[in-house]
Design a protein around this nucleic acid. Structure first.
Lengths: 231, 231
DNA sequence: CAACTATTCAATTGTTTTGTTGAATAGTTA
DNA sequence: TAACTATTCAACAAAACAATTGAATAGTTG
């Protein structure tokens, strides 16, 4: 066979290794979870509803393609995305999928109808109102994910502890909640809780990675890189 | 089962439909080819070395996920990428893959050694020297791909016709060739030809889509969108 | 209309992948 | 050291996939 042909075959074989990682729903969910912060196999198993052995296997596949890495902490094996660019790539994949597959758009609107009428506000609107001090931005993800990185100005109250902390919230500001991103329901749940207590609240659908891409694409002129990661 | 779980399963199922398209080497190669311009099944079959039936089948998979579309022209079925964002997404995938998989980097350097020492120059250097009128930029892809869209200022001489057109090239300028992108060998072949005729030549490894991303990320401040597509 | 072309369809084969189970390993705690 | 925990490994069955072949379709040309 032609040498060039052989070279291309090898090359695309390699690209397909990354592709294969993206071909299983469960694996995609794992990457999305890890994009928010390191997690143990056990945590991932609980979050995705898969058996531990199954999670372990998927993680190995991901590891072979260098999309995730791990280090052992005592008894646990803690996995994380191998690079920040993996998280960024997932945003690309989500964008493309949502653009091309009407089904995804449908699923998204369906669930929001189910969760009362909870249309997200846009990042642009949020930024504006935050600058004017009108809103308090709430990160409702688990605290360790907040610590890994969050939208500047946000405070952390994990969804499970929201009811406890209601008293500490300022009464003169509207609350805007966010969570892992457009396919995470925690921020919607938070708004539901807040509204049920008579607190004015809304949500954005973006998570940290979507936000990051947003600022990189809007104020390109200002500076090189936002330093929102505490590592 | 939990409603939220069920929703997520459906959602990730959909994402995985896009992922599945990316899990086969041949399918990736097809998308890359189509990203350069519309092609018939037969053309794709020749370009990839696959059987026609096989190509048709892959194209159907891609079509089900809305990554490609087609229209019939006489006896032929002409496929193309469904959206420009598909091509852009492929650049993301290439970037990520090349970053994570050393194997790809190795394959790339290997082939270039094989093709004499033909290190590409950077886009930045190219732009600078083009502005100073020092270089002539040569698009060596098939002409229809050039017509679909090209780097501004480039002229089209398909690789197969390069030898014929040697006389028409200006003698006072250095030639810089480009082709489909980092995984296409045509620009390297062009440089080889030119050098063998005593013409000073080099190449960039970027193609149209990589170039587009480059300008979008560098002069973000200037304007919204480069209008390099002739449609 | 007949011959021809490009493409798709359908059936088949062998291969890969998925999820499951239960056992094995490595590390921790009492 | 014994009991325990978290994770991985190995083996298996079921399902999904890729490539091949030959027939079927739709369109064109003489």
């Amino acid at each position: 066979m032609n040498l060039e042909r052989k070279w291309k075959d090898q090359l695309y074989q390699e690209f397909a290794r990354i592709g294969k990682c993206l071909s299983s729903p469960k694996r995609l969910e794992l990457i999305d979870l890890l994009a928010q912060g390191p997690k143990s196999v056990d945590q991932l198993s609980k979050a995705t509803g898969m058996s531990i052995a199954n999670v372990s296997q998927h993680l190995q596949t991901l590891h072979e393609s260098r999309l995730v890495r791990f280090n052992k902490k005592g008894n646990f094996v803690i996995y994380e995305v191998a690079e920040l660019s993996v998280a960024d790539f997932m945003v690309s994949l989500h964008r493309l999928s949502e653009k091309q597959l009407v089904e995804i758009q449908r699923l998204k609107t369906d669930i929001l109808q189910h969760h009362a009428s909870m249309e997200p506000i846009s990042l642009e609107v949020l930024m504006e109102r935050m600058e004017r001090g009108e809103v308090l931005l709430l990160d409702v993800r688990p605290e360790d994910e907040y610590v890994m990185g969050h939208i500047p100005g946000a405070i952390s109250i994990p969804i499970g502890e929201l009811e406890k902390h209601l008293a500490t919230l300022p009464v003169n500001k509207e609350i805007v909640a966010y969570c892992r991103g457009p396919y995470c329901l925690m921020s919607a749940q938070a708004v539901e809780i807040l509204k049920s207590k008579g607190i004015k609240a809304s949500r954005i659908e973006e998570g940290v990675h979507e936000w990051k891409r947003y600022v990189e694409h809007s104020n390109k002129s200002t500076q090189g890189k936002a330093s929102y990661i505490n590592n």
